[in-house]
């Protein structure tokens, strides 16, 4: 284990209550500041991996270290404080539709506020300014006071990225962030994610179905099939044929 590793996944297995193996003895390390694309067929276990990394679900076997801490031991307040430093971006954006963009973005700071302050919406001036800056980064400042459900899909995902920026995360997990967006909007959202990586020096793990986007944006590509790691190479050394192998290997 080296100090530059932000994430270590050691022999992790996840068996769901119904007996399905979501992850099967998977191991890899991630260095601070890397931009990694995770690719694989539908049902390969990509979402399972992401949910395991920020403890949205517990793993069956193995261990996951983040910044050297074994996350499986965390609970209650410790767990919530750990999650503050992990940004999560979802395919379905998961904004609170009926709230304004501003409130959605501020909700990224939820881990730093007491319950009653959240209920009353008493966010600090600093955080409100930070929300303005985050939205400006993703070019959505003009929508500050609009309701989230009045936005288009691509705009919603941008707001979700701004919300993640509020967390000042060490690690960003983006689970199919562009799967429901058109190619042009996808490109824009991927650029925003790369900005997180380049400007804010965040480590980004993004789960993609598009080989082209993976090759264009990622430093490194990890392939998963049936819950196992089947591919792990720098993007520069990967060819489209290599990647097709990840998808097709299972059938032959």
């Amino acid at each position: 284990m080296s100090d530059s590793d932000i994430l270590q996944v050691n022999h992790v297995t996840k068996v769901y209550p119904n007996g399905i193996k979501g992850l099967d003895d998977i191991s890899f390390n991630v260095k601070r500041g890397e931009f990694i694309a995770v690719v694989g067929l539908s049902g390969a276990g990509k979402s399972t991996l992401f949910r395991s990394i920020n403890r949205m679900q517990d793993i069956t076997n193995g261990e996951i270290f983040i910044n050297g801490t074994d996350i499986s031991k965390l609970k209650g307040k410790e767990l919530r404080h750990f999650r503050r430093k992990i940004g999560m971006i979802f395919q379905s954006f998961n904004l609170v539709n009926r709230l304004t963009v501003q409130k959605n973005v501020l909700s990224g700071r939820v881990g730093y506020y007491s319950t009653w302050k959240t209920i009353l919406g008493l966010y600090s001036k600093g955080d409100k300014e930070k929300a303005v800056r985050s939205l400006d980064h993703v070019n959505m400042l003009k929508k500050l006071y609009d309701r989230a459900d009045s936005l288009s899909g691509g705009q919603m995902q941008r707001v979700a990225i701004a919300r993640t920026m509020m967390q000042e995360p060490d690690l960003v997990l983006a689970d199919e962030p562009v799967a429901s967006l058109d190619p042009k909007t996808s490109e824009g959202v991927m650029k925003d994610l790369r900005n997180l990586n380049v400007k804010d020096h965040d480590t980004v793990l993004v789960n993609l179905h598009s080989i082209d986007l993976a090759l264009e944006f990622a430093d490194r590509i990890i392939g998963i099939r049936d819950g196992q790691l089947v591919f792990d190479k720098a993007a520069a050394q990967s060819t489209p044929d290599d990647l097709k192998e990840i998808y097709e290997g299972g059938n032959s």
């Binding site: 400006d136 500050l144 006071y145």
Partner: peptide, 14 residues
Amino acid sequence: MHTSEVPRRSFVKK
């Protein structure tokens, strides 16, 4: 400092 302007809200909305 921002690339675009911070929108304003009417008194009623605010």
